[in-house]
Design a protein around this nucleic acid. Sequence first.
DNA 1: CTGAAAGCGCTTACAG
DNA 2: CTGAAAGCGCTTACAG
Lengths: 344, 344
Amino acid sequence: MKSIYPARRERATIGDVAARADVSPATVSRVLNGVENVQEDYRRRVLAAIEELGYEPNRLASNLRRRRVAMLGVVVSDIENPHFTEAVRAVEDAAFARGYRVLVCNTDESADKQREYLKLLAAERVAGVILSPSQADAPEIGELLDLGMAVVAFDRAVTDPRADLVAVNNVEGVEAAVTQLVGLGHRSIGMVAGPPGITSGDERREGYLRGLAAHGLEPAVADGGFRIDGGRQAVGELLDSHPELTAVVFANNLMTLGGLHGLSARGVRVPDDLSVIGVDDPFWGALVSPPLTTLAQPVREMATCAVELLFRRVDGDRSEPERIMLDLELRSRSSCGPPRAGAA
Amino acid sequence: MKSIYPARRERATIGDVAARADVSPATVSRVLNGVENVQEDYRRRVLAAIEELGYEPNRLASNLRRRRVAMLGVVVSDIENPHFTEAVRAVEDAAFARGYRVLVCNTDESADKQREYLKLLAAERVAGVILSPSQADAPEIGELLDLGMAVVAFDRAVTDPRADLVAVNNVEGVEAAVTQLVGLGHRSIGMVAGPPGITSGDERREGYLRGLAAHGLEPAVADGGFRIDGGRQAVGELLDSHPELTAVVFANNLMTLGGLHGLSARGVRVPDDLSVIGVDDPFWGALVSPPLTTLAQPVREMATCAVELLFRRVDGDRSEPERIMLDLELRSRSSCGPPRAGAA
DNA sequence: CTGAAAGCGCTTACAG
DNA sequence: CTGAAAGCGCTTACAG
């Protein structure tokens, strides 16, 4: 059976174009990059030759020569988490508009995978990286910075003080949510927290603990690992060990989703039996039953900030690292109510 | 204010390593790539020099020299659609395992953006591209193929017969769903369809029409453009013009979500007033109220197939283009019931 | 404005 | 097994 693939077309090079247009490769490069002036006559011939040969510049070569590549790395811990999906999408938008491509790096909360990706990004000489770290103190982060690459920490801080940061005031936000629950009459409030060691999760736990402490209440925390299944499991543990709970705060949207599933499986009604507040306001937040009360992050705005910052660095801005902190917004829907009758 | 950035560290090159280890650059390259044998003594010296200099190979150079780059392009029409997010994620997994990176290209259903990205991918000389086309007959697809790059159409077919395809039997799947609704007693079934011209959407519409025709029923279709808002709007139009409808099929998950929102805003209860089936079974499908009856695509499997196929092509397999068609699976949950009492 | 030449940092036949 | 040399396809000082 004969292959239907045609003889692989040889790719024209800048030399082929130059020969056909009867100019030097340098001139072709100039019309290609449109920076210096080229006589109209030459330009026309070059353009014609490009057209005729179907020439497409080889970026591998120009990348090497220019020693930079119009590419950004976006390192996230879970691309299936709508929070990060939205961020990736916003970054892609902004990057595309500036002629940059984006390399998506999914670390699965694994320090190893993060390490590998950061090394890759260094080897690839990308212009910069937006990083939501799985491991905040990875030495590879410093190495990127050493190499002069821009690094913007996103959503979670990194240890290296030279990286910029765009994140959210988690402590204050969660503390306010707890206060809101207390205002509704709750005295037993649990938290399904993120894995320790990640600043966003740690701060949300901190906000929760502060909120409880401010009202003299006892905390009850379970680790849900920022995943759907973890959330389901953690809320179960929490209710088993603390049946008195009348409200639970979930530290991210995936755990909230899993938690709701777990609650419904146990026959726990929301908000009648248990009030729920979830950090993040994903697109399905208003559509689950009951519509979720959430602590929304301004993801799009965060992503836009991060990309702008990154491009400023790429463009040579060497001023002090920035720490841009945005606020969480409490969006009250129907998953919170007063504690059930008969609660302690 | 002094910049905290240190003098930008000069990057060691293979030449620096060679000098330090007192060998030739060729030898360094050999231990780096581990293909040819190098004397133990030399190897040790090279490794030591790499360590001491913190050398990280410049992939731009090796890419150029090798004339290929360990990178895949994944072109999707909407990365925020969980269906594609999951696919991207699966592709990233498989690619990472093989040492490939993935360039994520979001086209927003725009033919222009698709064109730009495909040209970019050609210029970048990626090994191959997995493409869920916004424009099936874009000439750039043929150009990639001409250049010897692997192209696997994903989820939607492309016109060029040389591309492989991994998709789903939409016609049969949706027809079966319609039959199921008819079995429940429905006689007035509407569809919120995708934008015309995209094979997946066209096939789902076709399956719907066939299913209705098989039972002598009248169709009622509105275009929801595969987006959340479109779904909300389309279901409204549908109910305005066809108040007799007792069931609606949505052609993808985003439109289903929007549709549910729109229905709840109109006070239409699911499934009491209206039964709903949605194509795709996103992670929130079982958690909305009521839990959705869906037509699930085996996304993970599709993505795995696509990547395997792609790598086979990258590895030189020039056999006939494949068309791998998987089946949709009807997952019955609670959003379908018998038609409301009093329905025509 | 234009071209010849050097060079980006690797890899890989080719000799030895 | 090892090294010298050529070359991947561009860009960019440097002359003219």
